[in-house]
Each structure stands twice: as structure tokens, then as C-alpha cells.
Design a binder for these strands. Structure first.
Lengths: 329, 329
DNA sequence: ATGAAAGCGCTAACAT
DNA sequence: ATGTTAGCGCTTTCAT
């Protein structure tokens, strides 16, 4: 491996000058610069980031924590993150935690050992205490899922309002018996979306029925299917379902179809996230769109500011109800 | 940041001894070890990987090149890669190339500048010449998509045989007019799968009709929909469709449904990859399953061997035809 | 069993 | 405008 010393020797200058040329400093005469550039060319020199990183005490790596890479909800967020990160000369370590604290801890160690410069956490299952601890010493931003208790800045949407709007829509098209397929209560977004659901019903003077609320262990088609199986068993079954994730809603559609029910005539369905798939189902899925790409770009920008030592404010972005076939005969 | 010096001082030993304790070398007496461990505890010391990496001239980062993070085909491969990588104390930099050479080059530079120790390329759009060039000096493995010309080891399946089997199945259930929704010809897998398609038809004495073959620019639902629109326009339209990707097949299902055709009664459909979603469509999709997770684990294992300087052989894994509703009334 | 010291490749403060 | 040099934090060889 040819290093900066070798180049300096070849060009007949000092390593400092080579470094200056490398960083486009204009304190170098055109003539010297040329000599150095020729030497670099000739030796096919590529500066080692290992040396630079140690010297500057940075890794230029950013951690992005997600529970599951297979949830399409994260796609556009990641794309947003990636595009901004690259333009700032950072790279992204996509960390799938599988909601496991051990796995999580491996990634936290990456920060502690200087292998990474900051974290964007999108993992609702993350050990919040550990995260807040880490945030005392390291730059961290929360994206989508967050905790308001600590000091960690976040970018997200108003989950309660979004959920409220979804259920309002179901009410407006004539439903009062509305089931909720929710995810695990331990997640803030789950509690917030439940609140929106309740508020919409109560405002309408409809009593919230426990049998209509189903909590799933994880997000995934199977869980949506299972939820519908349970929900249809109750006396006086619902005429509409609101699922807090498109994955659950798509599983629900599948199971409803298996049971011979027609959507939306027999039962209406609303999802959440507007993942790409949700337009390929039959019927297409009414859902809440989140500005995922924007969320991603904002999250990195905030993180990079934090790394530079600047302060940042949390941000709440707008959502949008997208009405498609599953709620409109 | 507390460093190894500080710990050594605290423990009253040399930095060498601290390093020895850190690496579990048994050349340290229990007593000394204890002193050091206490100092580490007390100071909450975490060794910096930046120093270690420079010293060892490694980054313990592996690059995984994929064209698009949103193609579910890669999920399980990535999971496989990740699990093995972590157990070997490597981390994964997931690199979405968007099939752009510039983007690709940014990632190649990561290798050249020692920011990464090796590459697993799954990008069919990769600049093969550049990759082969890079492979002269750096450890590289190809996964799924490959070129046999160079010296780069790969792990993949027998695309032609898989495709042959898919089409054979369509023939067996009574089809002779079979369309092919293929991806871009410049990809090896596309050419191989076309060959299998042709061989199956010719073996049956069926003439391959150009109008039945549609090439898409990219993989994605929309392209599958577009393909069907075109294919149905021909005189004497096909009674079956084989798509080289589940994404295309799912788009095809959608468009067939939009045109009022019933699958499989009016027209049968086979996909490729057995992505998770292919079981959520209506009807569920017959498809070719690839051992993705295995592919991923093998690819990293090969790569790690290469990094160690060992030689590895390319591997061809088995596939499997999974018959579901889209080909069985 | 432990310590001293060199050196990985780079940047930047300081000197000229 | 350019050079000299210290030092980032670690591992490892060589001595003791």
C-alpha cells in the first residue's frame, strides 16, 4: 500500500504539502500542486481513511437502527437518509436490531468504540434508558418512533391526529362498529394511534368496545391475518377495520377474502404508512401517508448538526389520508 | 475520551499489559489482570476502534452492493450475510447503487481507501470491468448475479434450469402459448432465464414467439403491469405468463385483474424469487424459491476466507418450484 | 510475566 | 509557500 510518505518522496515535497494538495488548500503553488498530482497519479495513491479517521477522531459512519429491514415503511426513510448522508460524505450502517437488546447493544458499542459518529434510531423496541444514557455522550436523533421524556431530538408525525383522521373517515362513510388492529402497547406510536381511534369514536358518541381492539406481537402479514380471525369471532362483528400498519392491513385483507367477505362492501379497511405494496392489493388499500423521504433527510441533517455540536429542535411533520378502494365501493 | 494510556496509568501497568488483558491473552497473571479490569471498570474505558483499525490496517466493514433496497428478494440474503458477519465481528455497509455508476464508484472508493475490507456484489447493473479490476487487489464475492468470465468467485443458482422448470410446469398444466416477462437483456440472469424458457418450449415442439417476450427496464410492479398491457394486445394472446421476478408477476396479476381476466382460469402466472408478499396476493403466486438466506451466509463466509487470503470455489445452489393458486384452479 | 518503544497513515500547529 | 514534527490510540516485537 502506497502511503503519503511515498508520494511526498516521489514528488520531492513534504507530506504536509501532499496533504494540502489532497485537501484543495490554495496555499500551494500551481507548480508544486502539479508535481504532487503527477506523483499521486503515477503511484495510483489513495489516501487511507484509517489514518485520517484516527487523526481526526471520527469514522464518518452513521448508524441507522431499524427493527426489521423487511418492513417497507423504512425504504423511503432510508433513501432520504442515504442521499443526504452521501452528500455530506458520511456512510450509513443499517442496523437491524430484530428488536433484540443484545443486538442493539452490539450497535451501541459501535458508537462507544468510535466506529460510528452518531445514531438515527427508528426502533420502537429500543431500550430507551440505554439510548438516553448513550445520548448524554453521543449524537443521537430519533426518527418516527421516539420518547418525549428525554432530551433526544426527534422527527415524527402526529400519530394521534393521523389515527383520528383515519377513523373519522370510516365513520363518515357509515361505520360505527370499527375494529382496531394495533401493535404492541409498549410502543408510543401504538398508544398514540389508539388514542386517536378512541377520540374519533367518542366524539361520535360511540362506545369503544374492547373486543374490537386487537394487539399484535409484531408487524407482519401473518399477524394481520390472525387479528382478523379473532376479531370476526366476536358477537356483532365490526363493519370496518383500522390497522396501524399496512402490513397488518394487507394480512387482514387476505384473511377477509379467505373468509368470503368482500372489501369494502362487507367490511371496510384502512391501513397506515402507504407502503408501495398497498397499491397492489385487491382492493387497493386506503391508508395514511407519511412523508418518509422527508423524515429521513431531516433526521440526518439534524444528526449532522448534532455531530458538529449544534443544537436542534424536534420536528413534527404532516401526514395525509389516501382514500382508495378498500373504503370506497 | 479515556484511552489505553490512562488505563495503564490507573492500573499501574504498561499499555502492553492492558492490551493483553483486552485480548484475553493468558500471559497475564490473575492479579495483574484484576488490577487492569478494575481500572477499565472504574474509568469506563472503551478501546477505540480507530486506533486498532489503523494499527491492524483493517476496517472490519464489509460492503454489500444491491441495486435497490426495496426489492424484497434481498431481504433474506442480507439477513444471512448479517448473521454470519456479526458472528465474525464484521459489520455490513449496505450500499444501494440505484444502478448508477457514480454511486457505485463512491462505494468502490470505500474499498480503495481502506474504509472497507471486502465486497459482496449483488448488483446486476454493476460495472463488471471496474469490479474485475478492483478484484485484482481486493477481496470480492459475487452473490446471485455474476459474471463467469473473470476470476471473481460467486454463489448463485442455476437460472436456466429454474426457468426451464417453471415453464415446464406451465406446459404440463396445459399451456403452450406462454409469454415471458423478462428484465433487461444486459443482465446475465435475464439471458439465462430466457434460455430456459426457450428450451422448455422447443423441447415441446412449440415455436418461440417474439411477441410473447417482453423486456422491462427495471424490476417493479409498474413494469409488470405495463408488460401485461403490451402482451395482451397481440393477436392470439397467451394463456400463461412467466415473469422472471415476483415483483413483475405481482404487477401482472394486478393488471390482469384490472382487465377482467381471472387467474388461473383465463391465464396462469408464475413468478420468481418467492418473496414474502407473493403469498398475500389474490390468487397466491406460483414461483421459484431460491435459498436466499443460505446464499447470503455462503457469500460472507467466502468473502471472509478471501480476506484471510484463502482461495474459494464458486457455488451453485438448488432452487425449488412452489406451486400455488396462480397456476392451479 | 511485564515493559519499552516503534510505527500504522494521516493532519495540523508551528517554524521557516 | 513549504517543511518539520508531534501525536491520534492502538498492537506487537523485542528485551528484560
Amino acid at each position: 500500500m502506497v502511503n503519503i510518505q511515498r508520494v511526498a518522496k516521489e514528488a520531492g515535497v513534504s507530506v504536509a504539502t501532499v496533504s494540502r494538495v489532497l485537501h484543495d488548500q490554495n496555499t500551494v503553488t500551481a507548480k508544486t500542486r502539479l508535481k504532487v498530482e503527477e506523483a499521486i497519479q503515477k503511484l495510483n495513491y489513495q489516501p487511507s481513511m484509517l489514518g485520517r479517521n484516527l487523526r481526526k477522531s471520527e469514522s464518518r459512519l452513521l448508524l441507522v437502527l431499524i427493527p426489521e429491514i423487511s418492513n417497507p415503511f423504512y425504504f423511503d426513510i432510508i433513501k432520504g437518509i442515504e442521499s443526504i448522508a452521501i452528500s455530506h460524505n458520511y456512510n450509513i450502517l443499517l442496523c437491524e436490531t430484530d428488536s433484540s437488546p443484545e443486538r442493539e447493544n452490539i450497535y451501541f458499542d459501535l458508537i462507544r468504540t468510535k466506529m460510528a459518529d452518531g445514531i438515527i434510531s427508528m426502533d420502537p423496541a429500543v431500550n430507551m434508558d440505554a439510548l438516553m444514557d448513550l445520548a448524554e455522550k453521543h449524537p443521537i436523533i430519533q426518527c418516527s418512533e421516539y420518547t418525549a421524556e428525554g432530551e433526544i431530538p426527534y422527527v415524527t408525525i402526529d400519530n394521534e391526529a393521523a389515527s383520528y383522521q383515519a377513523v373519522k373517515h370510516l365513520i363518515k362513510i357509515g361505520n360505527e362498529k370499527i375494529a382496531l388492529i394495533n401493535s404492541n402497547k409498549k410502543y408510543l406510536y401504538a398508544r398514540q394511534r389508539k388514542k386517536g381511534y378512541q377520540r374519533a369514536l367518542e366524539e361520535q358518541g360511540v362506545v369503544v368496545r374492547k373486543e374490537y381492539i386487537y394487539h399484535t406481537e409484531h408487524l407482519g402479514f401473518e399477524y394481520g391475518q390472525q387479528a382478523v380471525k379473532n376479531i370476526l369471532k366476536v358477537n356483532d362483528p365490526p363493519t370496518a377495520i383500522f390497522a396501524v400498519s399496512d402490513l397488518l392491513a394487507i394480512g387482514a385483507l387476505k384473511e377477509l377474502h379467505a373468509q368470503g367477505l368482500h372489501v369494502p362492501d362487507d367490511i371496510a379497511v384502512v391501513g397506515f404508512d402507504k407502503i408501495h405494496f398497498s397499491n397492489m392489493t385487491n382492493p387497493t388499500l386506503t391508508t395514511i401517508a407519511q412523508p418518509m423521504y422527508k423524515m429521513g433527510t431531516l433526521a440526518v441533517e439534524m444528526l449532522i448538526k448534532r455531530i458538529k455540536g449544534e443544537n436542534v429542535e424536534s420536528i413534527i411533520l404532516d401526514h395525509e389520508l389516501v382514500i382508495r378502494e378498500s373504503t370506497s365501493g
